[in-house]
Computed example of a mutant assay.
Amino acid sequence: MSDSGNTSAQKAEQAAKNEVRLLKKKAVVDQRIAAATEERGVTILLTGTGKGKSSSAFGTMARALGHGQSCAVIQFIKGRKATGEQLFFGEHPKVEFHVMGHGFTWETRDPELEQKAAEQAWELAKNVLANPDIDFVLLDEITYMYKYGYLNEADLVAALANRPAHQNVMMTGRTAPRALLDSVDTHSKVNNERHAFANGVKAQAGIEW
């Protein structure tokens, strides 16, 4: 048999092996899909030092909006500039967009002002978490409120447990208290391998805010 004949036979054998492998994988996936029968909203927590936590959360909200769902955003850190997501989603008819007042920022630390702003933001969060008309809730950078002791994580865990059954909730922040980590349905950690800013690249609109 020629070399080309051997090559053809080897390719056919490899293709047959790949088909068997894929069929086995499909059977496992189909079994998992069949076993996942519960229908309800989920809680998702994004933590870690890497870039992309809020970006991922807003991307998920865009997906929810694509399905006609009603959404609410509460940002627990107020920056110096209006963010691209606020400019884009802030006027959307199916989005309630709230930015924490004059409290927590990265530039100024005024504990009394931050405490008051955190409590006001949490009152808004409690309202949307209890509202059956809201399908998707994003609590952006909320975990910093627990890191600095401005809010009680037990209140958040309780509100999540008692929210409307269909409601999906995403939360972001670098770290999170153990009670929250243990309570959520999904927890993903974004790690930092490299960041342009560390190499002297200036933060820019459309990327960092």
Results as ranks from 00 to 15, higher is better:
40 R>S: 06
25 K>P: 01
69 Q>G: 00
143 T>L: 07
44 I>C: 07
198 A>P: 04
107 E>M: 11
188 S>V: 07
205 A>S: 07
135 D>G: 13
129 L>Q: 04
61 M>L: 15
110 D>G: 02
145 M>K: 06
64 A>H: 12
84 G>C: 05
17 K>S: 15
49 T>E: 13
159 A>M: 01
136 F>V: 12
194 R>F: 15
187 H>Y: 03
107 E>Q: 15
148 Y>N: 03
208 E>N: 01
63 R>L: 09
2 S>P: 05
202 K>C: 05
34 A>G: 00
35 A>W: 02
47 T>R: 04
182 D>V: 00
8 S>Y: 04
65 L>I: 08
87 L>Q: 10
65 L>R: 00
160 L>E: 11
77 I>D: 09
50 G>P: 00
135 D>F: 03
15 A>H: 11
204 Q>F: 02
117 A>Y: 04
110 D>A: 06
209 W>H: 01
146 Y>I: 00
199 N>Y: 08
150 Y>P: 00
70 S>M: 11
37 T>G: 05
58 F>Q: 02
141 E>V: 03
139 L>I: 11
93 P>S: 09
202 K>R: 10
163 R>N: 04
190 V>P: 05
162 N>C: 12
4 S>Q: 14
96 E>K: 13
85 E>R: 11
28 V>M: 12
66 G>Y: 10
127 N>L: 10
136 F>T: 09
59 G>F: 07
99 V>S: 03
169 V>Y: 01
12 A>I: 09
107 E>Y: 13
86 Q>K: 13
69 Q>S: 07
135 D>Y: 08
129 L>C: 10
121 A>Q: 02
99 V>T: 13
82 A>M: 15
165 A>G: 06
152 N>Y: 03
27 A>Y: 02
127 N>W: 01
24 K>L: 10
174 R>E: 13
184 V>N: 09
54 S>T: 08
133 D>L: 11
89 F>D: 06
106 W>V: 12
67 H>R: 14
93 P>Y: 13
2 S>I: 01
69 Q>T: 00
140 D>C: 04
156 L>K: 12
202 K>Y: 04
12 A>M: 13
107 E>P: 10
151 L>C: 06
85 E>Y: 03
168 N>F: 14
168 N>Y: 15
133 D>Q: 14
136 F>E: 04
192 N>T: 10
146 Y>C: 00
206 G>L: 06
118 A>D: 03
37 T>R: 15
89 F>A: 11
49 T>L: 06
119 E>A: 12
7 T>G: 02
24 K>I: 08
156 L>W: 05
146 Y>P: 02
141 E>Y: 01
147 K>M: 01
46 L>K: 11
153 E>L: 03
57 A>K: 04
170 M>F: 13
119 E>F: 00
126 K>H: 12
209 W>S: 04
51 K>R: 14
98 H>E: 09
69 Q>A: 07
198 A>K: 11
129 L>M: 10
40 R>Y: 01
59 G>Y: 03
113 L>T: 03
43 T>F: 12
38 E>A: 14
158 A>F: 03
63 R>T: 01
118 A>N: 02
84 G>V: 04
150 Y>W: 06
5 G>C: 04
101 G>I: 05
120 Q>T: 11
